[in-house]
């Protein structure tokens, strides 16, 4: 009989990256107790696990803001004036790259290429992508985040 799911087929590799994504999605960061659990499950020293988590820019070990704002400043966007966009966003949120606002609403990340280079400048708000941005449009989007 044909089997129809990956699990049925004995796909038994546990993918740590997948687990980390799931945890990150539920808590918006990877809390310490989950790290303990994973360390046990994957039989890994905690330090090594931290090493893995810290390697990836999308994983956090501290809570992020409710909205993670990612602004691309790689070459194509840079040419399309992402710098101005970034400065205005920085000023509006009054935080720097990598920081979270005091009310825990926004985390700002200046990131490398997001793959929308033909439509720059580009910003992501959580998993939503906004292209062809002017600073005015971007601030409006941020103001609408509640």
């Amino acid at each position: 009989m044909a089997q129809n799911t990956a699990e049925d087929m004995g796909y038994n590799e546990e993918i740590l990256l997948e687990k980390l994504h799931n945890i990150q999605e539920s808590y918006s960061y990877i809390p310490e107790n989950e790290i303990d659990n994973l360390a046990q499950k994957f039989d890994m020293p905690r330090a090594k696990l931290y090493g893995v988590i810290k390697f990836y820019s999308m994983f956090y070990t501290e809570p992020t803001g409710k909205y993670v704002i990612r602004v691309c400043d790689s070459l194509s966007c840079h040419i399309n004036n992402s710098k101005k966009l970034l400065n205005d966003i920085r000023e509006y949120l009054d935080i720097d790259d990598g920081e979270t606002t005091e009310d825990k609403k926004f985390t700002l990340e200046v990131v490398e290429c997001l793959g929308y280079c033909g439509e720059g400048p580009v910003m992501m708000v959580n998993d939503e992508v906004y292209t062809h941005l002017t600073p005015g449009m971007a601030l409006k989007i941020l103001k609408n985040c509640v």
């Binding site: 087929m9 999308m58 290429c113």
Partner: peptide, 14 residues
């Protein structure tokens, strides 16, 4: 022919 495909998401590392 049998083949299983699984999706893995990267996490922000070029």
């Amino acid at each position: 022919f049998s083949f299983d495909l699984r999706l893995v998401k990267g996490a922000g590392a070029y």
